[in-house]
């Protein structure tokens, strides 16, 4: 009898500690946690975070009618605080009538060409970034939640392969720095875990807002690989994988990074 009670007791203790270990198991870190205190405060203060200037601009563009259809984003989507909440947390996604995933910038350009009958905005265009950051800002503090969509599996798989593929003259893969050596230092700077938690980001080095694509190109140049063309599907595949990898982390858009 006592033996049985003891066994049950031990089982309970084990179950409790296992559960505790599972809760504590998430040791993933956003780049935010690896920044200095000054930069964290800059990001947290909405009147000191330069990214908020672009959120403000994005809000103005949201309500501005453009294109041959003379429609604004608000004409279809209404208030972004309602209609765009959570959107950035689940992108990239496959738009209706297509079989390829697009990122948020791609989705905005689709709306421009199909609904507004306007020209596509070029990559890293200020207005495109402002609209993207305005939309993504509506998901701030929400957890990254990539949707279950079997059509995305192949693209996520491709992204995972790119992430682990050695490339460039330095013969490095993303994983070598951001999985195997994350938290260590490279030229005095902490190597982050590469979770896309705050894109588009305001990077002080750029003195501007920039997309995840720009950041990825930065890394590719860093390992002396040839960067893919700006419209290459590799970026979206990689973003799909990174978002999957960062599932559950909170969005910070607009993030500030050194």
């Amino acid at each position: 009898m006592t033996g049985r009670l003891l066994a049950i007791g031990l089982a309970l203790v084990f179950a409790a500690s296992y559960a505790a270990a599972q809760v504590g198991a998430d040791k993933r870190r956003s780049g935010y946690q690896d920044m200095g205190e000054a930069l964290q405060k800059m990001q947290d203060d909405d009147t000191a975070n330069p990214g908020m200037l672009f959120v403000q601009l994005g809000g103005q563009l949201w309500n501005r009618a453009v294109g041959a259809a003379d429609k604004s984003c608000a004409d279809c989507h209404g208030a972004a605080a309602v209609s765009m909440k959570g959107v950035a947390a689940r992108y990239p996604a496959i738009p209706g009538g297509s079989d390829r995933p697009v990122d948020l910038e791609g989705r905005i350009n689709l709306c421009r060409t199909e609904q507004q009958k306007a020209d596509r905005l070029p990559p890293e265009n200020r207005d495109l970034l402002a609209l993207t950051v305005y939309v993504a800002h509506q998901s701030r503090d929400l957890q990254i939640a990539p949707p279950y969509d079997p059509r995305l599996d192949a693209f996520r798989q491709e992204g995972a392969e790119i992430y682990r593929r050695r490339q460039g003259q330095l013969n490095l893969s993303c994983a070598i720095c951001h999985d195997d050596n994350a938290g260590k230092k490279l030229a005095g700077i902490v190597i982050p875990e590469a979770h896309p938690t705050g894109y588009p980001i305001y990077r002080l080095e750029w003195q501007a807002l920039g997309s995840l694509k720009r950041r990825l190109r930065n890394c590719l140049v860093g390992i002396r690989a040839e960067a893919w063309p700006l419209d290459a599907p590799e970026y979206v595949a990689l973003e799909l994988y990174l978002m999957q990898r960062a599932r559950g982390l909170k969005l910070e858009t607009p993030a500030v990074r050194p």
């Binding site: 009147t47 200037l53 672009f54």
Partner: peptide, 8 residues
């Protein structure tokens, strides 16, 4: 039109 943020 300029984009400005003021904290006062």
């Amino acid at each position: 039109m300029s984009n400005i943020l003021v904290n006062a």
